[in-house]
Amino acid sequence: MRPEEGTMQSRARAIQALLELIPGDVPVIICNGFPSREAFKLVDRPTHFYMMGSMGMAAAIGLGVALAKPAKKVVVLDGDGNVLMGLGTLGTVGALKPKNFIHVVLDNEVYGSSGNQPSYARVVRLDQVAKAAGYAHVERVREREDLVYEFKDLLGKDGPGFLLVKVSEQAEDVGWVSLEPSQITQRFRKAIE
């Protein structure tokens, strides 16, 4: 099912490309496990919300921010395991259609933070689920240049947008997010006021 596995970019490379394109004043919700830890190591901004627990809830948190701040773009960096766990939220987003909501799913088809157990994302087309749920724009990419092109495109469009990024299972050697959760809350609230 994954013939070009060897040429795939890593999740950290994809996160780096995305964070380079996201303006510094745009709130970014990052799902729990390696995505938050890798993003924190790459670049830490007060506009980042690093989710530690509450698996499956990244999109719901981002949706709450998007509804509270309709004039600001909101980006969610999610994982395939998280999306499958909170699949109902695709329906909520598709029904509410927040124009400022961009949902990026870094899909490595495994539960990478707990030992690379296979996820159903290798058979369930999450991009097609998002499309059926009612997201306004849905794209699926693998190459870095396609990721950059499509994400820039989504940033300039009315959403909700959904970008599925196929990434390899490779994980960086990263520590925990060394911030107090209450500090993450306080600085995030201040940064997006």
Partner: peptide, 24 residues
């Protein structure tokens, strides 16, 4: 009122709304 599909989703949406300055 913004309907949610699961109560944990509703709680997480409320948390996001609080992050955005609302009282949920």
């Amino acid at each position: 009122y913004t309907p949610a599909v699961r109560e944990d989703e509703a709680v997480a949406m409320a948390a996001g709304a609080y992050l955005g300055g609302r009282v949920p």
